[in-house]
Design a protein around this nucleic acid. Structure first.
Length: 191
DNA sequence: ATAGCGATGTTCT
DNA sequence: GAACATCGCTATA
């Protein structure tokens, strides 16, 4: 089993696959919530036309250039927050977008934040909201912070497909979904 | 189950 | 001004 730090220091596609099945844990507000990562996407640097880092460093994407394990949180469509885990050596922008998970801990708190009991974390904006992650956490580290990644990576098969919701580099199969071997995911109609 | 559409604000041209 | 790594509501089946 690859240690988390090494995994995140490596190539973003490898990191994306290796994150599936691990827990994304939040202690925002002093309450523990956690999801099992089931859907992620890899985004590269200047060479990846779909990446926020494609046109170089900017105000928004600055944390993508940080150390591996840095959180990159951005606002999507002016309404939602989306969570990424920065990968690769410091200074090389690439990150794994967390698109979906299976509710694991603190489900009552997740329901409260989402103001509903279904669809708690089956989408990037929903997952961020369920875990209480906002732009305030942009640039913080998951190796030593309120948001962390725990546990071994997943048992189960990984399906890859094109990334969702983008208009460039649409043929790259850099979306990865964990197909659980156990009973169906609580909250992940995809897969 | 799936399709269409408006909301909303930051980033980039 | 246009584009945007989305979501939830509504309508139709």
């Amino acid at each position: 089993m690859i240690p988390l730090r090494s995994l995140l220091s490596g190539p973003v596609v490898t990191a994306a696959r290796g994150l599936l099945g691990r827990l994304l844990v939040s202690d925002v507000g002093g309450v523990r919530t956690a999801v099992i990562l089931t859907e992620v996407e890899a985004y590269g640097g200047v060479d990846d036309e779909a990446s926020h880092a494609h046109r170089g460093r900017s105000m928004r994407n600055a944390s993508m250039f940080g150390a591996p394990g840095t959180l990159y949180v951005y606002r999507s469509y002016g309404v939602h927050w989306c969570v990424n885990l920065v990968c690769g050596p410091t200074g090389t922008p690439s990150a794994v977008l967390v698109r979906g998970g299976e509710a694991h801990s603190g489900i009552v708190e997740m329901e409260r934040r989402r103001a509903r009991v279904d669809h708690l974390c089956d989408g990037p904006g929903k997952l961020a909201q369920a875990l209480g992650i906002t732009g305030e956490l942009d640039g913080s580290s998951i190796l030593d912070g309120v948001i962390r990644v725990e546990g071994p990576s997943g048992v189960g098969k990984i399906r890859s497909s094109p990334r969702v919701g983008i208009t460039r580099a649409t043929s790259l199969p850099w979306r990865f979904v964990l197909v659980s071997e156990r009973m169906g995911p609580v909250d992940n109609p995809r897969a």
